[in-house]
Design a protein around this nucleic acid. Structure first.
Lengths: 359, 359
DNA sequence: TTGAAAGCGCTACCAT
DNA sequence: ATGGTAGCGCTTTCAA
């Protein structure tokens, strides 16, 4: 009747054991690679498994061991080159350590992030890597961590959360970049970020909920203050959440009477849109506007002029956070570690002195 | 002794049932949302679950139902903007349909791809989306499919494999692009791809194992043949597997005596490197070289000159393949569907007539 | 409408 | 070294 090859509709250890003429326990030992078995039996079982085309059921294994061999990763948006590169770092380390990765996008929305973590908990992931949408709203993370789930934070830390964290030295980078612009003679320096506030206006760094961005803004404001400049808060623009928003905000800024002579883009997606706007408005970079962008995205080196950037070790960020988590999963460490990776300013031709006489 | 809040170290249906004063089966019915229960009991159980902070164990659920609520996705490299955008499309559709995604990079290596699929099978994913590294080597896919696992192919089909497939009209796009270059007067048109052959040389399209690329090359050669050009195989270069390789190959080509007047890059990563090489060698685009790239990557519109590209609906590719798979998982369809999405040539300033008198 | 009990496929503990 | 057996937490008959 059934002339198809050995139907693999769930060949179990019991089946293999039966064919090999040994007990279920023994078959399980060789199939699962634990315990001790004689060479003779091992071969018999292996042969039977091959003949039957046995495939282990990791789900069942996880049920009894309590380990799923899975790491949950929650990032803002995998489409963003920053995250896709970081995720590449994470998956590389995870795979090498024998873990698979379940990936969920939060869209930088806390509600979605919470749902994602609930899902991941239900799937019984062994550990969690999260790039929190809002550092002020991390109760769900704290709870997951307290309930015993190893947790590591990517790119955005939280002072309140004492867990493994890997970030870049954003504050320092922003300070350095700002100082450079100041020393070139700029005084009207704008900062543009995707992070938003309830009324879409910036007042104080405390309103910024994304850790990395808040630190950058603090660095920016700090450098300005050190240079004797006050009220620089007015140059910080928030809410560049989509290319369209970014374009609108950038145009508004660059066409106003009191326009910036330099602009710092908080990520490469924003930097790209600002660059496009400059073209569209016929503004010369760096003559009319000096442009600096965070993240050394591929396009920044091929524009005319090429764009000065803050180079972050993005792949390394992912790699490192995954390593920390794996260490913890392997029980090699208990204490929380906060790692800060160095950035580097790559000065290219998009930055220069402001036009003479202007401001 | 233990003064911490309700320890959530695995609160089970049994615990909830006990607290609610009902049987395990009844508690399971309301917790699992199946069967019928009275409102009174439902409330009691819900309250008990909340009090105990019950979290369902999807693993256990999957054990009995046989469905894991998970889709396995195998792509070449999530770092590549093409794949990260496609994956975004996949995850969006999957999430909306109630599935999570396990992501594995194959690095375009068949052995890694096989291992990935083995892992995914062991994890009992409900379905699989794969962008096969080599269409000539799909025995593992055929096997997975035959064993009853719903499978859908992304960007790279296989005539031998009668499964759901979503690709772009690569052949047509390549034909159109080639015709355009021919009509501009180009005769020395190079094609550069990451796909490699054993001896790193191109002979015939049959040697190209990546479906999408093979189709493009067939389109390229077909268009040349129609124009009366023969021996164009010599202009096809393979093995641009890393930026370094790409740079080396591109330099070799552009510095040789018989150099191309136009070049088609098989993906945006290659296109970017070629663009850089042109700069480095001081070649003017399009004066010295007309450049066309597949994939409308973000950077292509901001270079000087902006680059002519084949715009593929990459997000849509991912979206569509995920929809097909979900349809099948929901048992809404049995037959295999092959979807071909339209591309569009975006002609920008990187293409023009070749220099007078040359060849 | 509710409850009792039988598994899902595997690991792990205790004997032998 | 090998076998028997008791679960893991859930769903799913089958009865009541």
């Amino acid at each position: 009747m059934d002339q198809s090859p050995p139907r693999n509709t769930s060949v179990t250890v019991a089946d293999v054991a039966h064919k090999a003429g040994v007990s279920k326990a023994t078959a399980a030992r060789v199939l699962g690679g634990y315990g001790t078995v004689s060479d003779r039996v091992r071969e018999a079982v292996t042969a039977a498994a091959r003949a039957l085309d046995y495939r282990p059921n990791e789900l069942a294994r996880s049920m009894t061991t309590g380990r799923s061999g899975t790491i949950g990763v929650v990032v803002g948006d995998i489409e963003n080159p920053f995250f896709s590169l970081a995720v590449r770092g994470i998956t590389d380390v995870a795979r090498q350590a024998g873990f698979t990765v379940i990936l969920i996008n939060s869209g930088e929305d806390v509600a979605a992030e919470k749902a994602a973590i609930r899902t991941l908990l239900a799937k019984r992931v062994d550990g969690l890597i999260v790039s929190p949408a809002k550092e002020s709203d991390v109760e769900h993370l704290r709870e997951a961590f307290r309930s015993g789930l190893p947790l590591a934070l990517l790119d955005r830390g939280s002072d309140e959360l004492d867990v493994d964290t890997v970030i870049a030295d954003d504050r320092h980078a922003a300070e350095a970049v700002t100082c450079r612009l100041l020393s070139l003679g700029h005084r009207n320096i704008a900062y543009l970020t995707a992070c938003d506030t309830p009324d879409h206006r910036f007042r104080t760094a405390k309103d910024i909920n994304t850790g990395s961005v808040r630190r950058r803004i603090e660095g920016f404001l700090g450098a300005c203050r050190d240079a004797g400049l006050t009220g620089m808060e007015q140059w910080i623009h928030v809410g560049a959440v989509t290319p369209e928003h970014t374009q609108r905000i950038a145009k508004g800024m660059l066409q106003s009477a009191l326009r910036p002579t330099a602009l710092i883009a908080s990520d490469s997606v924003i930097g790209l849109e600002v660059f496009k706007v400059c073209r569209e408005l016929g503004l010369s970079v760096p003559h009319d506007l000096s442009l600096v962008s965070f993240h050394d995205a591929d396009w920044t080196s091929v524009t005319t002029p090429p764009v000065t950037v803050v180079r972050q070790p993005v792949y390394g960020l992912g790699e490192t956070v995954a390593k920390l988590l794996v260490e913890r999963l392997n029980g090699e460490r208990q204490d929380a570690r906060k790692v800060v990776l160095k950035t580097e300013i790559v000065e290219r031709a998009s930055t220069g002195e402001p036009i003479q006489g202007e401001r």
